[in-house]
Design a protein around this nucleic acid. Sequence first.
DNA 1: GTCTTTTGTATTGAATAATGATACCTTGAA
DNA 2: TTCAAGGTATCATTATTCAATACAAAAGAC
Lengths: 259, 259
Amino acid sequence: MDKKDPLFVGTLEKGMRIIDLFRTAHTPLGLSDIARRADLEKSAAQRLCHTLYKLGFLERDDDTRRYRPGMRMLEMAFAYLIQDRLVELAMPRLIEVARTFNTTVNLSVLDGVHIVYKTRIPHARQAYDTTLIGVRQPALNTAAGLVMLAFRPPEDLESVLARWQPAAITPHTTTDPERIRAQVAAARQDGYTITSNQLMLQELGVAAPVMGEAGVAVAAVSMPVYMPDWSVERVREELVSVVTETARSVSYACTAAKL
Amino acid sequence: MDKKDPLFVGTLEKGMRIIDLFRTAHTPLGLSDIARRADLEKSAAQRLCHTLYKLGFLERDDDTRRYRPGMRMLEMAFAYLIQDRLVELAMPRLIEVARTFNTTVNLSVLDGVHIVYKTRIPHARQAYDTTLIGVRQPALNTAAGLVMLAFRPPEDLESVLARWQPAAITPHTTTDPERIRAQVAAARQDGYTITSNQLMLQELGVAAPVMGEAGVAVAAVSMPVYMPDWSVERVREELVSVVTETARSVSYACTAAKL
DNA sequence: GTCTTTTGTATTGAATAATGATACCTTGAA
DNA sequence: TTCAAGGTATCATTATTCAATACAAAAGAC
């Protein structure tokens, strides 16, 4: 953050900034476009893209001359996940649940004002981007985010609320801080939470916390389902016990593994 | 590759080299270790790691002072996959098959002498690292790799054979080029191939090619199963039609989408 | 189809920013 | 406690990146 950090290698940061563009730009990008978006001189963008291309972190459409993410970016996910004990412990349990109840099951963690999906076992027909790992979503508009904040120190919630920039993604997206506080409080009581129509119409979410040591949530197990097949009532009856049990099972495994 | 490339940004390459270390080092690494493995001066490693850490591409265990992959590395997978039409088209079909036949289903592509898994729908109990995307495996020791090479120009196979460094990962791993040639030829006849005990004992693999335009394989659908539940015969009877049908279905979707 | 604008590519001198040597702290093993 | 190995901080030097520029090649406008 501080520009005067003598150990900070600016060139590397610029390169990563280019890579990072593709998290939000879901389409190939030309050189000028990249330069503009990453706030770089055209020549800098040229050199950095060229380098990333040579290294396999970017691919290039020779016709349009646009760059798009390269397969080395996919391989980085492996490098990350292979060291993630939490996912490793959770995986078999999530698979089992997905298979038994024939639903999608997600594992996510909190990161700033967002949650990030670490694992998704896709099972139903759903939008492509909701089957992918590494997705960021606003914590306060997801069941997983709310339930994690419910089982973390209150200052975490306040911190997220303070930095939160509410956006009404659907007509039913909650944007009122007070309603968020109420829902988090309820989640703390219940041990789970259910959301509806937050980021996508017809979508319901149910989540329960994975607890680490010190009684603090470190992750959340969540299941997305869709209306009209599902309703809040049916979720409460059929899925709440599933997510809470799964989350608890993962929690046990974590503490057993001293994680 | 050429050191005299005037557009090549060495600093960026060094940074990416550090990130890349974690693809093979499946454990946290200290600074000196990183410097050694990436062939960097200690001070360079220090600066680059510091930068990657600040950016969230590395995390740090404050006790051991070791670095490990950061969550931004996971998010890069999303950036990659969100632009991958092939995976997008294949995903619902793979999910469907996994659900119906209650098995794991993988989609992989060829990259040099390796295959890389782009999607895995995990379904059975299996080793953690075989559930992760972005994994690299030697093409000639996987059903997917063999079947892709069977439906590509012969020079591709020769090229891979030439660069191949056979390693007997299990006692039954094929290391004889002639046997590989024979198996690829058979795969071309049959439209599928079955492997056994190649990279893991008790493991069987069956794969069929996803064809792009020009009648060339662009990917492969594969299913791993395990003895003694499964045998080559049972795979032939029950799974061959599944993988070939799935692969064909994905192929159709690809050509329909002009991919 | 021609003209104009925008985008991509190649080259270069200048100076900034990365370098790597070194010295100083820490940590953990002996 | 000592010592070796690993981590951190600092700084003069110069190799590397930088930004300007010129050229080429597309893409749009008319």
